[in-house]
Design a protein around this nucleic acid. Structure first.
Lengths: 308, 308
DNA sequence: TACTGCTCTAGGCTGGGCCTATGCTTTCCC
DNA sequence: GGGAAAGCATAGGCCCAGCCTAGAGCAGTA
């Protein structure tokens, strides 16, 4: 079986025209190098050196092998360097999960932070939807993610809350913003809600479901759309009201629905923004970096939660 | 220590997303491949796969390593193929020693024979002078050679005679060609001899020295030149006579000295054309090929010697 | 001829590499 | 929801590769 070690011994011997010298350079005893070369000759089925009195003389086969041996060693060295470079976060790809309001608040800034520190890396911010992120985490495709979760508990997952984000009622009708919205009023409201496709898993909806369930009512939505932006625009047009995270309201209402405003629910409801990864996993330096930067970004916007 | 085996296991596992599948393809038990990958991760200091429930998932580091691992394996495979190709005489260099009349008789034809059979090879016909060829053989730079030797015996060398070549007296004076030339007449002749620089080792001169020594005379040369062609030309101009191998006379006199002719010595003297290589050496296929072809060429021209 | 320098051989030790058996976890399916 | 299946890790044992030291053999050299 051909091995890099054999090729290394071969090259050093070829250059020195001497097994003893090669052994010295490689830090081995002479018979060890001798054995490697004998093994190489055996696996290749050729004679590489003529043993002649003092020293050894390469055959023409050795001449032919040499450049290929060098190329192979160099390729192996390249591989090692490439990995080292990736490990040092100089090159390679950093993949991180981020979904929903977390990405809305911190996505671009987080990428900017990473690129500022590590200009050579590629960054992948994964998260078409909440279910996919959870699935990717579970399947190991994602090492860690920051997502909004309704409750801090998940099968085999370690969930570390970093901030909480109040859910607010938004409306273009100032009347409805005069006082905090109770479950009863919420149940009677005409709502537009985003994340249609993933409604079963959406964090905000889960929170609302719980809130209404406690008062014996079912959630009602008049309009279903995919993204928060569309929902906010519809609210701005006065076609419905909605419930979205406070941070989203702050960012989107001035831009998309200047006429609208927001008010708390009663009792106040919160999404929890948390770092999630597989329980018991040892996180890579890249993942730890992303967690650190993402947490800083999020806590600058949403209300920090200090885990004890 | 990085090894090709580790890289092979890594690649197969990467492709299958499964250690078990990789082990099956590679023909090992699952724990063996597992151990190789663990070893690779240890030497590189990184995590290549996340172990997750059913199967394993490559990390981004593994993504980065993959092309380099493939390149390294490919380079090693190239090396193996290159050597195989050389061993099959499809490519590479065939080096053979050939000096003096042997090259004069058979050099070009031998190269043609080799290239006809093995169009891809390079051929090196080494032999600036007799001493160098012997030295190259002794030092191992040459594996085998065909040269003219005065006697069939040499220190640590295996000498296999393949043909003998009569030494003839050549002259432009028909008078001197009427009868075989004795040692006495030779001692009195005005001679031009080639191979000045290597006169001590030249085969023809050694034979003549012995012949004259037995009659108590010393060899006399009037003119010393480097190559046989010049000597023959000088003979053609009637400036001196010479003693050269019969085959050389046949080839050169019609071309370079049409007025000259030749006659035997008395007693007849011979150069022995022999294959020479280090005693006890195992000859490579290339060397055996050259010996076979060179012998055939030489025996078509000079008088074959069948060794018992 | 004795000495030096280099390779090979011999013999012994250690660890890597491979195996089987088994345990643990996840996944699949009834 | 519970048992079967699948897949990785661990444990333990065997064997040879790889390394060493010591010494023989041989070529080149003073």
């Amino acid at each position: 079986m051909l091995s890099l070690h054999q090729l290394r011994c071969f090259l050093t011997t070829y250059e020195h025209r001497s097994i003893t010298a090669a052994a010295e350079e490689l830090g081995y005893a002479q018979p060890s190098v001798s054995e490697q070369i004998r093994g190489l000759e055996k696996t290749l089925g050729v004679t590489l050196f003529r043993r002649v009195g003092r020293g050894v003389v390469p055959t023409t086969v050795a001449d032919s092998l040499r450049p290929h041996a060098e190329a192979t060693i160099a390729a192996a060295e390249d591989a090692r360097r490439a990995v080292a470079s990736v490990a040092a976060l100089e090159t390679g790809t950093i993949r991180f999960g981020m979904f929903g309001t977390a990405r809305l608040y911190a996505g671009a800034g987080l990428v900017a932070d990473v690129l500022a520190r590590h200009p050579g890396v590629r960054v992948e911010l994964i998260g078409q939807n909440s279910t996919d992120v959870q699935e990717d985490l579970r399947r190991g495709r994602l090492e860690a993610a920051m997502i909004a979760v309704p409750t801090v508990s998940s099968e085999g997952m370690q969930v570390t809350p970093v901030a909480r984000d109040e859910l607010v009622y938004i409306s273009a009708d100032p009347e409805r913003l005069q006082s905090p919205v109770t479950a009863q009023r919420l149940a009677e409201a005409s709502l537009v809600m985003p994340e249609t496709t993933w409604r079963a898993d959406d964090s905000t909806r889960t929170v609302l479901r719980q809130m209404l369930h406690e008062t014996g009512r079912n959630p009602q939505t008049r309009i279903e759309v995919e993204d928060v932006e569309t929902a906010v625009e519809l609210v701005g047009m006065g076609l419905a009201d909605s419930v979205i995270p406070h941070g989203a309201a702050v960012q989107l209402i001035p831009r998309l629905a200047p006429e609208a405003g927001w008010v708390s629910l009663r009792p106040k409801q919160f999404d929890t923004l948390a770092i999630v990864h597989r329980a018991g996993a040892t996180l890579s330096p890249a993942a730890r970096l992303m967690i650190e930067l993402a947490t800083a970004r999020i806590q600058a916007i949403a209300e920090p939660v200090r885990p004890r």
